[in-house]
Design a protein around this nucleic acid. Structure first.
Lengths: 178, 178
DNA sequence: AGTTTTCTGGAACGAACAGTCAAATAAAGA
DNA sequence: TCTTTATTTGACTGTTCGTTCCAGAAAACT
């Protein structure tokens, strides 16, 4: 499944052949069809799984550290430091490829974005309660902005931006929380 | 050409069939091949043209208004107000689809991003000179950040975000420049 | 050890793909 | 008006696509 996720993220749905999937997953073609049904079902399952894991990871990062602001900083800067050159996030890739054309892809994307933004908003609210984040900041707006920043970083990285560039961009984004 | 751009932006390179191009461009199949050579050449030409126009538009917006900060605000908020639901930017789409896999696509994307960011950086520098933008802000970092914000807004819009959400996100981004 | 289930790799299938060909029509030039 | 050039339309071509079929091998079960 992880191999399918990576292949779909790299080449997109249309650009990924079943041959490429069979190769990257290292299973027989018939087993792939027996297990997942068809290419689209495999894509949906990979996307669902990917989004679920991503939300889980963000939740762990933002809920583990004492200071909410530090947690958000760690999430953004950690992402900028860690993301691999040329990699693509399947979530962002699915939005770019399908827009809202496919109802199930759209549903997974919206659900995942909503969960992600709820976690950000809750963290922002905690930061406001603790006086770390200015009171005039709306948690939902800030959550959407952070999500947009993650998207921007992902596409930049996909296009070959350096880690320094990504980190500087993340630093700029964090200014609005101070 | 505009029709080809829109079709490629909507479906991506792999997802766009030559039949769809013939239909959207409203010309004969043979004429399309006579004029552009093949699908890939048409894509490259559409991408080049799209990026050139985008940079031109941003230049006009950012260089026409007296106040640099106001100009950047107008660019971001204007974009958030104007962008159409479900549309896709061919530039962002090309990065997401190809990453750095295709040398010519990558070259067009990097060149366009560099031009765009130079315009942003020059505007930021003017804002610093006029005291509108804090002196500790690095123009190149800010330029990259603004570009990342545009990317984030474009993908959000593609995923169905409302204009209010986009505007609020743009407002958050503008806080980083204050 | 024998039997059953699962997996593999290759072949086959029909549909879709990008690109080419050919004849007819329309537009441009003399 | 006639000739030349460009465009259109439909058909065609070989390749690739996603999916199914099949026989043999491997793994799991009794």
């Amino acid at each position: 499944m992880a191999a399918a996720t990576k292949t779909f993220a790299t080449y997109g749905y249309e650009g990924t052949s079943t041959e490429a999937l069979v190769k990257s997953m290292g299973i027989g073609r018939q087993s792939m069809y027996d297990t997942f049904g068809d290419k689209r079902a495999l894509y949906l399952e990979a996307l669902q799984h990917y989004c679920f894991e991503s939300v889980g990871q963000i939740a762990v990062t933002l809920q583990a550290t004492g200071s909410p602001l530090t947690a958000i900083e760690a999430a953004l800067l950690g992402f900028a430091a860690r993301i691999q050159d040329d990699s693509m996030c399947l979530g962002v890739g699915s939005i770019c490829e399908f827009g809202r054309r496919d109802r199930e892809v759209t549903a997974i994307g919206k659900s995942s974005a909503a969960s992600m933004q709820n976690i950000f908003a809750a963290t922002i609210q905690r930061g406001k309660d603790l006086g770390e984040i200015p009171p005039e900041i709306d948690p939902k707006d800030a959550a959407r902005f952070i999500n947009a920043t993650f998207i921007g970083l992902k596409v930049m990285a996909r296009g070959g931006a350096t880690h320094d560039d990504l980190r500087a961009t993340a630093q700029m984004a964090l200014r609005c929380l101070g």
